[in-house]
Each structure stands twice: as structure tokens, then as C-alpha cells.
Design a binder for these strands. Structure first.
Lengths: 126, 126
DNA sequence: TTAATAATAGGAATGGTTACTAATTAGGGG
DNA sequence: CCCCTAATTAGTAACCATTCCTATTATTAA
């Protein structure tokens, strides 16, 4: 994989964001730094970065577009169905589940995609 | 919600299927019973059925289209990254995890969307 | 420096899903 | 049983996220 300024900025911008962004979101942010970048370049690089494990994707179910997550490591997402906010939470607790799944089905787990929907602390107070 | 033959057949066909189907898959299956049904009708009814909790959706990450699942109850999906097969597995074990999330973040969980990726028993044998 | 090739911008094409409209159908009240 | 009203439908056009295509530009190894 050859170096490209576009890819570097895309990755840096995504990692710097505190939220999960669509390709379009990122496109607009990166355009402030590289005004002539194309949307296709953003998509192509996001796909590449997912492939090499630098970033991850998730689907927010109430938006049709893919969300990109600057974290490459496995973690879980909490989606508040009231305000729509998506937050990360670590999961260092899955080993027992994986073992159980293997015992029951002979299925060897190597990746988790866990989304919990509910109400966040702030919305609960109201 | 008024009765419609189209909706009844769509639901019955999905529940009878042993796999997870796209709207297009269902459209072709249902057309064998109602030849003049339109794809739009399939989509509209699937959305309705999801809304009332009769069925669920999931995204298979390597296909862009939504998959529909005839089960309305919460359950977990195992996706084999080798053969692509998606199987269901019950999860009656999430209560401790939900409590932990509430303790840590004050987030009140009421729905789970859990996808485990890995290798299924059949593929492991090879 | 040069040659090979990966990456880019721009725009066209694709494909899944939704929106629109006129015609049809369900089903409750007279 | 027959209106009446509102939900539903078929068919088609529109939409939008994503991918594909091509000529040009940038990277990197020799």
C-alpha cells in the first residue's frame, strides 16, 4: 500500500472525531484540509482502512449509511433510542460467551459486533 | 392496521424460510403465490412488520442489502466468515451484561443486536 | 532519473430502498 | 346489503449511498 496524503488525513480526521461519522461527514471535514478531494477517494480509503483493521464500521439502523469508527479494536456500541447518541464501551467479558457458543454449536468466534439499544443516562434523567 | 393478503403471505413466507432473506428474495418467493405483487409492497410490509415487532432486520456486512429475520424475539446471529452461513442462537444470558452496562454508564438496555463472526463447525472440519 | 504502478479527481453508473399516484380493497355504520 | 372512508396496492419514477471507470498525477524502488 503506497502512501497517500489523502489517506493520512482521512484516518487522522476520523481518529480525532469523538463521534462516528458517515463517509459524507468525513468528506466535508477533510475538504477543509484538501479542498479538491473526491468523495470516491474517501470511500476507497475507508474501505482500505477497514480491510487492514485500522478502523471499523457500524450500522445505526435508523440511518441508511455506514458509520465509520476510528477505533480498530473490538468494542461494543450503546445506541440511545431517545437521543440517538452512540457511545463506545469496552468488552473484556466475552470469553465465557465465546466458549459457550463453541460448546453448543462448534462455532469458533473471532469477532464480535455488539450493539445495545436503550436509554442513556442523560435521557433517563428527563 | 387493515388486513391484506399480501402482508399475510409475506409474513408467512418469511417465517417459513429457514434462512434470512432480502426483500428481493422474498419478492421472488411471494410472486409464486401472488404474481402481480410489487417490490414496493414487499418493502412497505416488511417495514410495517418490523415496526410492530413481528420480524427483525440484520445487516450481513458483506452484502449491502438488509436481511429480514422471521423471528421477532431477541436472539443472536452467528455469521461464518468462511461459508457465509448465518445461524440463530438464543441468548438467555445477557442480564448480567446489561446490569454491568447500567452500573458503569447508567445506560438502560432494552434491546440487543449481537453478531458473532467466526468459523462454523462444518467449515472447521475442513 | 526513470519506470512501474498505486492513487487520485471527476463523473457516470449501479443497486437497494422509498416516494408518488391513481386504482383497488377492507370493513364499519347506516 | 351497500355506502363511505381510509388503508393498501401496483407500477413507476425518484433518491441516495456506494461503486466503477478513465485519464491524469503521485509514490517509490531500482
Amino acid at each position: 500500500m503506497k502512501y497517500s496524503k489523502q489517506r493520512e488525513i482521512i484516518l487522522k480526521t476520523l481518529k480525532a472525531a469523538d463521534t462516528h461519522l458517515t463517509a459524507e461527514d468525513l468528506y466535508h471535514k477533510v475538504r477543509e484540509i484538501i479542498p479538491r478531494i473526491s468523495l470516491g477517494t474517501v470511500y476507497r480509503n475507508l474501505n482500505l482502512l477497514v480491510e487492514v483493521g485500522e478502523i471499523r464500521t457500524l450500522q445505526s439502523s435508523d440511518s441508511p449509511s455506514i458509520l465509520y469508527d476510528g477505533r480498530g479494536d473490538e468494542h461494543c456500541h450503546l445506541i440511545c433510542t431517545s437521543c440517538g447518541k452512540i457511545t463506545d464501551i469496552d468488552l473484556a467479558l466475552f470469553t465465557p460467551f465465546d466458549l459457550l457458543v463453541y460448546d453448543k454449536r462448534g462455532f469458533l468466534v473471532d469477532d464480535h459486533d455488539l450493539v445495545l439499544k436503550g436509554t442513556c443516562a442523560e435521557c433517563l434523567e428527563k
